[in-house]
Amino acid sequence: MTTQTVTTRTPPPRRLPSMSVLGPILALVILVIVGALMNSSFLSAGNINNVLSRSAFIGIIAVGMTFVITAGGLDLSVGSMAAFIAGLMILVMNAALPSLGVGVPIILLGMAVALVAGILAGLLNGFFITTLGIEAFIVTLGSMGIYRSLVTWLADGGTLSLDFDLRTFYRPVYFDGILGIAWPIIVFAAVVIVGEILMSRTRFGRHCAATGSNAHVAHYSAVNVDRTRLATYAMLGLLVGVATIMYVPRLGSASASTGVLWELEAIAAVIIGGTVLKGGFGRVWGTVIGVLILGLIDNILNLTDLVSPYLNGAIQGVIIVLAVILQREAKAKG
């Protein structure tokens, strides 16, 4: 064959990372600086521990949401799913208390219930979306209502509370930790590390991105599109279960108001982090930044008196939109 001489070009010089990478980091750094200037206790170990622990639930869920959104899906049901799983977990543990007594086995039982229920709930969403081909928005809007009603029904409109002794025994899972780092933070970090590797270094991550980017291309490239999507929902369900395991020991209760709007916070964190809402590109580390930004806004507003509490929501809204604009601005420039 005839080959023409290829014009060799010198590789372009290393440029600064693009704004889509820097944007969320920059927003986070600015928030930290603002927080530190506003209140001296902002950077104290106690406060940082508090904020990170609190963010862990949304964070763990948001990591799962990153995969779902990257693969071109959406899940609105995670908040009420968490409430339902928390309720179920409490009921099962209370019911098993007479036979198992207070101890490690009953905690493990509760955890197993949460994980299994999470996976099943995720698979159910995924089944309707992939096998039956119903819009993810509709399916998960439906299951959002279903789980919310189920937990209200389980609690008879009130609050389900873990037995007091059991709660005392289980409590350290939220409040204690290793070397002063609370368990929720450790679990969150582990989930993030596994998630980041899964997303950027494994077949599954590539398949998610390919599916979300163009499902036809993925199909023609021998990617099992339905199974990939199903797996993202199952994984998100599992992570909702993990988040619930960390949530229940904190207050030892679940009610109809548990986990309200968690789904929107998780989705917001994912998008702030630079994952594309319509799918095809996702990054787990970005989601972590998004979660931290959301957590810090609340914290800073509580620590300062500058803004009327009535305007908290407005401040949050402005920062979320700004964080996303910061990235888009960069995209437009190329």
Binding site: S41, G46, S257, N312
Partner: peptide, 23 residues
């Protein structure tokens, strides 16, 4: 010395109280 909305919600009030204690 401080006043914030906890929205009649256990989780929200937990977060607000943690921050009050830091502050």
């Amino acid at each position: 010395i401080d006043m914030q909305h906890g929205n009649w919600n256990r989780d929200d009030s937990f977060n607000v109280m943690q921050d009050f204690l830091s502050k």
